[in-house]
Design a protein around this nucleic acid. Structure first.
Lengths: 335, 335
DNA sequence: CATGTTTCCGAAATCGTTTTCGTATCTCAA
DNA sequence: TTGAGATACGAAAACGATTTCGGAAACATG
């Protein structure tokens, strides 16, 4: 390990001067600064992250809260794409990414403690139980955070525009002649609330009344549950002509359920999903869905986070909405 | 931030004693040790990672090399599942995970430099260009590494048993009466070599000669390429009765190609994939494939890595093979 | 009681940086 | 020539932990 001391000796200056030269303080002569920089490069010097951190308390390290329970999270394509995009952007901007969890060197700890322990400059909050105390403690601490798809009071977040998305999707069905539209939605979360809002708004604007029996709860990413729900839904007198699923994954279960009831897509029933994961292009019939721009979401979230980190005075808490778009497949029939 | 000094004052002992008590040195009296531990807990003390690292050069931090080029890597379900499993296991064992890249605080650097900079106790090498100089420099440095699905001389690796897997898969086809089996394989990598070996071995053992035109190169995870390849493959006089695809994803393209040629699966042609990602259960017809135990791979790789880290003397370099299993779908017809 | 052995604890050095503050040199106008 | 103000640099004190080494107290042994 070549240290600042080695460089100082090689250049015949003090460590203080080396440090200042390397960090671009105006406090050092032009020629010495050049010499020091050149020597540092020649000797293949890299600062000791620990020492730097210890002294300055900044780590150039971003924590990520990304818990995978019940096969969501990392293995969910929606999130892994966001993470991937966030990782790339963070690296480009000179920040590393570390996962935050509830363990510190084997001992149990809170998220906040962990983030402090690692001296994370900021934390990206995605795909966790947003309402849990542990997460809230972190979000409302003095560590900068950005949350994805969930809004905390006075904190920044990146949002896939769920109201607008579900609205457009519903509108799409209506434009294709459907007026009896069912919505199988995910478990109760803020995302779900927004999608419900978008759904109802589209219906209202077009004078469509939605019977209560057309709106049912399932769970995101739950194939079996959706299969069962779809069966209950379609087991009523006045069947809908179109179904909106919680997400693309649910389509797999939904399709099974419909198939088992002898209903063909889209001849007998039109369906749409949500997310636009790559999978949808592979299913048959190819699913019509709402594509969420995961790459953009990832990029925007680390940019905002770094903005808060580097400009704590001027950066303001804001909700950034990232628009998606309808991705047409072959599961909607025009009536 | 409560430090060791605060505790020492609260207990009326020196910081040295606190440190020793907290780290379980035998060098401190029973009662004082208990008092110190209790106080530490009460005051909600957590060590300063940077200070600890600076002094001891151990970080309880594992680096992960996980590059996503061309939509593989993180967004590939195979790898994201491994990562997820590795992450969980590492956390359980008290290690954090940080991504290693070629940037240090904005400046360009090598993987090795980055790993050193962050003082990674060890590095997990997965899904990168294994043969690149930058990766080799890291692997052959003094930093413990474990590679996934690639063997370096004298280094440990976790291997999905590709020879055995492809062998079993081929055997499965043979057992179902197929003798004209084509293999569309991925680009030239060590994994591909092994799968080819398994494929040829199964054929040989059963006295099957494989015409050269039955073995074609495509690319992993490349839907379009496989679609095109399949068309060329099936555009010959003596068609195979079964096709082995590079991976499950390729099936999507392959299926399209076959469909466009008017061939039905499995009536006209049997096919199998490789990986066993969740997706396969959703496709229709459901794909017969070889499931790779990603969870086990993830767990074993961090365990081995931590073993090397914590027992550098006794831990030996070894290749650990993780077995998978045939996952039966409906794409193979018995002849 | 004298001496040797444990047991327990603390002073202080150290890891590699950053940063404050003081000082020496230099520049330049009067 | 002189003194004020820049400019360039260094000494040294941190940051929060670990670890060596020595010494005091307690205990055992003859």
């Amino acid at each position: 390990m070549v240290t600042i001391k080695d460089i100082s000796e090689a250049c015949g200056v003090s460590t203080a001067t080396v440090s200042k030269a390397l960090n671009g303080y105006g406090d050092v002569g032009r020629t010495t600064a050049d010499l020091i920089k050149a020597t540092a490069k020649r000797m293949n010097y890299y600062p000791n992250a620990a020492a730097k951190q210890l002294k300055t308390s900044v780590s150039h390290n971003i924590g990520v809260l990304f818990i995978d329970e019940t096969a969501c999270g990392l293995t969910h394509e929606f999130f892994s794409e966001i993470l991937n995009s966030a990782k790339t952007e963070a690296e480009r901007l000179g920040y590393d990414i570390t996962f935050i969890c509830k363990n510190i060197a084997g001992r149990e700890a809170s998220f906040l403690e962990h983030a402090r322990y690692r001296k994370c400059d900021g934390v990206l909050v995605a795909s966790v139980d947003f309402k849990s105390q542990a997460v809230q403690d972190l979000v409302y601490s003095n560590i900068p955070t950005v949350s994805i798809d969930y809004v905390y009071n006075d904190r920044s977040s990146i949002l896939s525009d769920n109201v607008e998305g579900e609205y457009e999707l519903t509108k799409y069905l209506i434009d294709h002649g459907h007026r009896k539209i069912a919505f199988i939605h995910g478990e109760s979360t803020s995302v779900t609330d927004k999608r419900l809002a978008g759904f109802y708004r589209a219906c209202e604007e077009n004078g469509i009344e939605v019977p209560e029996s057309y709106v049912m709860e399932s769970r995101y990413h739950d194939i079996e549950r959706c299969r069962d729900t779809v069966k209950i839904l379609m087991d009523q007198k006045d069947r809908p002509t179109a179904i909106i699923f919680p997400d693309d994954y649910s389509y797999i279960g939904g399709r099974q359920g419909l198939e088992e009831m002898g209903l063909r897509i889209p001849e007998d029933i039109s369906v749409v999903g949500y997310d636009g994961i790559r999978l949808t292009r592979a299913l048959s019939p190819q699913l019509t869905t709402y594509y969420q721009d995961t790459v953009e979401i990832g990029i925007r979230s680390v940019r905002k986070l770094i903005d808060i980190i580097e400009n704590p005075k001027t950066s303001i808490a804001e909700q950034i909405k990232v628009k998606g778009r309808i991705q047409e497949g072959k599961t909607v029939k025009t009536l």
